[in-house]
């Protein structure tokens, strides 16, 4: 059986702030208790990742985002057929929609932790602002992972 909580950070470590998702995973692996948590990473989301959602109680996607207003954002995900269907890189909402289509059931509760990002050039490191944002996001993710409870996570959505 897979672990009940899935922490899925995606991005490219060598593409500047795109590394934020994988770097948060590194933080979680070194600072958080992960007895109930499976950590997965990939460059980008694709259709087969829908199968990673099976038998989970909670799922947390972590990604870099240029659309964030604050250092990070925490939202509930719903299945959605969005624009990302036409690319090699799908959105988490689209992955949930594929899950629903394949499994004929509602996906487990899924959340997205978006960390504000600025630059994505090959070979770049994190921007100064992204480093600060990552620290804040890691602290927040640590609280989520130490309280892997749907009610608690939903309260955090409203709090952010």
């Amino acid at each position: 059986m897979p672990k009940p909580v899935l922490l899925f950070g995606y991005g490219n470590l060598s593409r500047g702030d795109d590394a934020l998702g994988p770097l948060l995973l590194e933080y979680a692996e070194s600072h958080c208790g992960l007895d109930e948590v499976e950590v997965l990473t990939d460059f980008q989301l694709q259709i087969e990742h829908a199968l990673d959602l099976e038998s989970r109680r909670l799922v947390l996607f972590v990604d870099a985002s240029v659309a964030c207003v604050d250092a990070f954002d925490f939202t509930v995900l719903e299945p959605a057929r969005d624009k990302s269907y036409t690319t090699h890189a799908m959105s988490p909402a689209a992955v949930l929609d594929v899950y629903q289509s394949i499994k004929k059931q509602t996906p487990p509760p899924c959340f997205l932790l978006s960390i504000k990002a600025e630059q994505f050039e090959l070979g770049d490191g994190l921007s100064v602002n992204a480093e600060t944002n990552l620290v804040e996001a890691c602290s927040f993710a640590g609280r989520l992972l130490s309280n892997p409870d749907l009610g608690f996570w939903l309260k955090q959505v409203n709090a952010v």
């Binding site: 490219n12 593409r15 890189a89």
Partner: peptide
């Protein structure tokens, strides 16, 4: 480019 931004395509 392996870089992605939601809804950028």
């Amino acid at each position: 480019c392996a870089t992605h931004a939601v809804g950028k395509m």
